[in-house]
Simulated assay, not measured.
Amino acid sequence: MLTSANLAAILPFPDLDPVAIWLGPVPVHWYGLAYVAGILLGWLYARRLIDNGKLWLNDTAPMTRQHLDDFILWAAIGIVLGGRIGYILFYDLGPVLNDPIRAIQINKGGMSFHGGLTGTTIAMFLFARRNKIPVWSMFDIVAAVAPIGLFFGRIANFVNGELWGRVTDVPWAMVFCSQHLVDANNGICPAGPDPRHPSQLYEAGIEGILLFLILFALCRWALALKKPGTVSGIFIIGYAFSRIFVEFFRQPDRQLGYLLETNWLTMGMVLSLPMVAIGLWAVIRAGRAATRQAA
């Protein structure tokens, strides 16, 4: 139970219903709306990047609006399938092997960013090859808009009261316990009575807003899109470092806990470390390719 001291030291968690609206008998969840908002706003921003030829190598965008419109379906499939499969492989493989139907029970497990990134990368590669679009420029366009989707996704995590942070006594700590969460968990508050870091909001601010502003500056003012692969590499590095940082405040997945008998190393950190090396390689490769072309 919460004590009076706890109540005085924490911020109230908003009692928001995970269902945004009902369309007759069909519930429309905030999480689904977050995906729609992220893809729609990302698509609009990507169109503006494509329309501005001065941002691109040889002052010509590598793809058309029609290409971008066609790619939306590919991206959605890559995000959803990759995210779900990645979550199962990285975080929930044992329970799914024991109960295969769990693989489609999203309420018993969510999506993995690393899996979604892998699925989207495969979709981008196949789409670019099919439509004769330079692969690295395709990667750059998606990387530039990806933080928009990350922002809305983390906000949806917060609304759902999931992926909460570690126990803390900071003034902005929250007890992730609302009436909707209690009702959905048989009268039990899933995060317990302790105040915790609102780590979902940390991720929304760093992975979403801050990373978007960095990539925006690179595209608009540093003209990084003229060096295909630079924006992709910076995005991967930026996400990896932000995820590793937030993992120090985020509660690890219950079925995995901390790794290697530590009280700090998590699966999110392990999966993010190789991304730093991949991102550095992409940036270096882009610089060398630009130097060769200039020569």
Rank of each mutant, 00 (worst) to 15 (best):
G110I: 03
G32P: 10
I206E: 11
L150V: 04
Y91M: 10
I104K: 05
T118N: 09
V135Y: 10
I50Y: 01
Q255N: 14
I21Q: 06
R65W: 02
L201C: 15
G208S: 09
A5I: 03
G208F: 06
K108R: 02
Y35I: 01
A8T: 08
A5R: 13
A224P: 14
K132I: 01
L265M: 14
A9C: 03
G42C: 10
N185F: 02
P134D: 14
Y239T: 00
H197Q: 11
P198W: 01
F248L: 08
Y45E: 05
R243N: 14
S199Q: 14
I148K: 02
Y31S: 04
G53C: 06
V142G: 06
L163M: 15
I209M: 04
A222I: 00
L225I: 00
L271M: 14
P274H: 05
T168S: 12
I148Q: 05
G86M: 05
I106K: 12
P62K: 00
V26G: 08
K132D: 15
S272T: 03
D92Y: 11
Y239H: 05
V159T: 12
A282I: 04
A224I: 02
L11P: 14
W74L: 02
K226A: 07
N263Y: 05
L265F: 11
F241A: 02
M267V: 15
S232D: 04
P252W: 08
A76P: 01
I85F: 13
A75I: 04
T168I: 12
W164N: 07
V175E: 09
I133Q: 04
L181K: 07
I237G: 10
P12R: 11
F212P: 13
W43F: 15
P190K: 13
L55I: 01
R130P: 15
S199A: 15
H180I: 03
A34W: 00
L55N: 05
V96A: 07
R243D: 08
K227S: 02
W30H: 10
A294C: 03
H180S: 06
M1A: 15
W74A: 12
S272G: 06
A144V: 09
L201A: 12
R102G: 09
L213N: 04
V19C: 07
G153W: 05
Y239D: 02
G115E: 09
G153R: 08
I106D: 06
M174A: 01
L55H: 11
P252N: 11
A8M: 08
A222R: 15
L41E: 03
A8L: 15
V231A: 00
L97E: 10
D99S: 02
V175Q: 08
A37H: 03
V175F: 01
A156R: 04
L81E: 12
S178N: 13
A76T: 07
A191N: 09
M138V: 06
I72R: 02
W264Y: 15
M111A: 02
A282T: 03
G229W: 00
P228G: 07
P171C: 12
L57A: 09
A46V: 00
I39H: 01
G53V: 01
F151N: 07
A143E: 06
S242K: 00
R196Q: 08
P14M: 06
H180C: 13
A294T: 05
D253K: 00
T168N: 04
W22A: 12
A20D: 15
T118F: 13
P62I: 00
A76Q: 09
V167D: 07
P190W: 06
W30K: 07
V283W: 00
N6R: 06
